[in-house]
Design a protein around this nucleic acid. Structure first.
Lengths: 349, 349
DNA sequence: GAAAAATATGTCGACGTTGTCATGCGTCTA
DNA sequence: TAGACGCATGACAACGTCGACATATTTTTC
């Protein structure tokens, strides 16, 4: 392997001078610099990170730990966000996933430590509460899409499920819907409660009575093996003589069944029922016709901001280990219609 | 940072002896070994990979390059497959994604080189033909879910789209379907042609005439901004007086619209039309009711086998740079019904 | 019971890089 | 014109690990 020494030899300078050129340090003549650069090109020299690390003990590397339950396919956008940030800032990414096994997790932390990682991003594939099994390893850590339960407060970045559901509810209210159905997400998901709370509160604040809201459970049970009531619940909801004019659902996946239930009853969307989803699973939200109005989880941004935050922590900013929250974005498509002249301004900013 | 030297000091032996213990070399007394191990535990010593690499110039690290068009959400299972293999075999994974930019790609290869990566897995998120932009870097490489176009033949691992479509077609024929509709995938996808060919050939071999097959284009245009005719095409197909008894579609995403089209026409699935998909996007195939019979792409296996193959290449097995193909798996659910007593054995193994 | 073999441990240097310090040279200041 | 200063470069050590080799101790062999 061609090293700094061979370059130095070819360029006729000392290895320290080559080092200076590589790192853009001052005090090198233009002429020397060019000679060295030519030698580098000619030899195809590439600096050896391992050697660099061994001297400076800064690896410029972040580790990513994921749990990787791939039921929520778009959450990998978090990783993409991190990678893009890392790329833009000259960091390297080491990746590992636990598959849920906690012995595995301990190994991973050891592995990270042995690579002298600068910091760790602990990423879960759905929004939840977890406690990282760090073993006795301590490396600066930021949690993304999850939050620690116990004492040891690690900074975390989470999606704002509450605000997302609030926006969707307002969107429906704004368009004149006064009887709204809500089919709930599996309650073991952290987002489920937040979204439901937002829905209730927002509708309540607007003046709707609890009787205007039909709130029903759509799924329950362990992730990956849940019981699914969505089709039945939606069918029932839509058969009431006083049926809702709009249905909100826990996520886009559930929405497919609501669509099918509606169509099976001969109802048109959005003329007869308006429907909104949550998550913006694009395989679903764009494939449904009419395309689905939904709230996009800010996965990519979570990744970017998480990396940014971790970088701050590593650099030593004594940042309060607070939990930051990133807003969801309402994606307006064509699954909702206005029932009456828009009651404008009611919820405008 | 605690190093081998501090351990040696505590244990009262030379650093070489510590090294021996760490690497499980012979010629160490049980008693010494225990003393050293205790010192390691007490100090929380973890070997420094960088230093190890610098000595042995084997990084035990694989790099992953992805293009990361996240339109095909489950293809990240490839990465999971690689990671699990790496974990089981003590390798580390460095990840980077191009986002499609080729300058970026060249940078990545440089970066990999500077980490003295042992080999590279070049992974695309949908099945296609690509030529890696390696710059002038040469590292052992295996391509997964894609295939090189030009001269420089790199080994590759691909899903067997042909066999998958063949299995699905046989499945329908076996159940008595003799008039079958087919809604084609975007032709710019490599799988599109393979799947269509398999469908045509298999139906033809069985004795169906071209007139028994209605083959229609469902999508076209650049990935991410394609034109979508699926709903219209499906509606039209199902309105023919002599309509097909079963419809195959390019992928599960398209299938949603076929379901909706069918329901809108008052047709029941599978009693009036049977439907099969392709890909097993579980957000869709499990969410549709009735659940969708489809062919699962072997993403996870692609990852595993790719890593395995790369390992062989790195170890120097002069393996022919052949293209290996991994079978798709038919996932039987409830979207297909039998039209007549099963013509058993026709296609049995 | 001496030579040979097997076992147990240590010394030293090298991997590729960069930080520290030293040196050489030209230019400015008083 | 001597001393001070700024710039350009080099010599050398050190980071943590392990391979090559050397040495010391025990066991086996005939």
């Amino acid at each position: 392997m061609v090293s700094i020494v061979s370059v130095a030899k070819v360029a006729g300078v000392s290895n320290k001078t080559v080092s200076r050129v590589i790192n853009g340090e001052p005090y090198v003549t233009e002429e020397t610099r060019e000679r060295v650069e030519k030698a580098i090109r000619d030899l195809g020299y590439v600096p050896n990170m391992a050697a660099r690390l061994i001297r400076s003990s800064r690896s410029n590397t972040f580790g990513i730990i994921t749990d990787y339950v791939s039921t929520t396919p778009y959450s990998v956008d978090i990783v993409r966000g991190v990678q893009d940030w890392a790329n833009a800032n000259g960091k390297t990414i080491l990746m590992a996933n636990t598959g849920g096994a906690s012995e595995r997790e301990i190994e991973i932390w050891k592995m990270f430590q042995s690579h002298r990682i600068d910091g760790v991003l602990y990423i879960t594939m759905f929004h939840r509460i977890v406690d990282p099994e760090t073993g006795d390893v301590s490396i600066p850590t930021v949690m993304i899409n999850c939050r620690p339960q116990t004492h040891e407060l690690l900074p975390s970045i989470e999606p704002d499920d509450y605000q997302g559901a609030q926006d969707l509810t307002r969107y429906l209210l704004d368009r004149g819907h006064r009887k709204i159905g809500y089919i709930r997400l599996n309650p073991i998901l952290l987002g489920a409660q937040l979204r439901l709370d937002a829905f209730r509160k927002t509708a309540g604040d607007f003046g709707l009575a609890e009787s205007d809201l039909s709130i029903r459970l759509g799924m329950e049970g362990p992730v990956g093996a849940e019981k699914n009531y969505v089709f039945a619940v939606a069918t029932e909801m839509l058969q009431q003589k006083d049926r809702p004019t709009a249905i909100m659902s826990g996520n886009d996946e559930m929405t497919i069944q609501i669509y099918i239930a509606a169509m099976a009853l001969g109802l048109r969307i959005p003329e007869d029922v308006s429907i909104v989803g949550f998550d913006d699973f694009r395989t679903v939200s764009l494939a449904l016709k009419p395309e689905l109005t939904t709230a996009a989880l800010p996965y990519y941004d979570l990744g970017q901001e998480g990396a940014e935050l971790l970088n701050g922590v590593v650099a030593g900013s004594k940042a309060r280990p607070s939990s930051r929250v990133v807003p969801c974005k309402l994606v307006e498509r064509t699954s909702v219609c206005s029932l009456e002249p828009r009651t404008s301004g009611r919820f405008d900013l």
